[in-house]
């Protein structure tokens, strides 16, 4: 069992948890992911690692309540335990040779963009961190973000924080203002990563995206996480999760992400208690 040693609600839909998992914490690196399973009936769900503490033997995950399993995870508290927690899986992000970069995070992707920005910033790179949320109430990790970059730009879809627009618009503005980047790292919803990749393609700026497709085992065995990258089939779990954004077939990835939508709705419907609205 893997105890939840810390729980912090970041906003109405997003929660941070620190999980005691020494075997994972020992080897975890930014960019890698874990798979958790809550209980015996549970599904295996991949989440990118948001942080780790090798001495305490803990791994930090940040998740959004988007379906039955994440609702149920959110209903757990410090002192509760997860049945399974395996990792670190996937290849760590490569930060080699990056000197001036833009790290872009959208929504929950901010949670994963943060450790990457921090690692780069700590390594002496100049980092513009551009993050986007639907509105100002959803902004997470503001203090942490500020400490992890050279410039922090926070965008909101509705402009409620006084900075209306998408992260792509902010990136475009930076570039037009003369900022030069050797690398752009984009982490977030598929349409956002696609938009960023399309924006940087004509400028020939190396763009890295972090893919999080449906998967089961996370070790290459099931092949459910396959993507088309540069015309070749790649498995996100062993070849990724980071890929060259200019080579990823995002439309295909988006279609594959919809495979079990109706079933997800069914699971949620069945399990969410009519009285209390809680997952059981």
């Amino acid at each position: 069992m893997y105890p939840i040693v810390k729980k912090r609600v970041l906003n109405e839909t997003t929660t941070l948890m620190e999980i005691e998992a020494p075997l994972v914490a020992r080897k975890a690196l930014p960019g890698q992911f874990i798979i958790f399973r809550i209980d015996e009936e549970g599904e295996r769900v991949p989440l990118t690692i948001a942080g780790y503490d090798r001495e305490k033997g803990t791994v930090t995950i940040i998740f959004q309540k988007v379906g039955y399993t994440t609702e149920k995870l959110d209903s757990l508290n410090e002192g509760d335990s997860l049945m399974d927690f395996v990792g670190p899986l996937g290849e760590p992000s490569s930060t080699e040779g990056i000197k001036r970069c833009a790290v872009i995070g959208g929504g929950l992707g901010v949670a994963i963009a943060y450790p990457q920005a921090k690692a780069l910033h700590d390594a002496g790179a100049e980092v513009d961190l551009i993050v986007g949320f639907r509105n100002e109430h959803l902004i997470i990790l503001k203090d942490e973000l500020e400490a992890a970059c050279t410039n922090l730009i926070i965008m909101t879809d509705d402009g409620s924080n006084g900075n209306k627009g998408f992260v792509t618009q902010a990136l475009e503005k930076q570039i037009q203002a003369g900022r030069e980047y050797d690398t752009v790292i984009a982490i977030g919803p598929l349409p956002m990563m696609k938009a960023v990749s399309e924006m940087t393609r004509p400028l020939a700026i190396k763009t890295i995206v972090s893919m999080n497709p449906i998967m089961i085992d996370g070790t290459g065995m099931c092949g459910g996480c396959r993507l088309t990258v540069g015309g070749e089939t790649k498995f996100a779990c062993v070849d990724g999760p980071d890929f060259d954004g200019h080579l990823v077939d995002f439309d295909e990835a988006m279609a594959r992400g919809r495979m079990f939508r109706p079933e997800e709705a069914k699971a949620r419907e069945k399990h969410i208690c009519n009285l209390t609205g809680e997952a059981r």
Binding site: E41, E43, E263
Partner: peptide, 17 residues
Amino acid sequence: TRLNLMKAYTFPEHDTP
């Protein structure tokens, strides 16, 4: 794997579809 390990044939009793 979905069927045997994750028992998807009992979905939604088990969570894997």
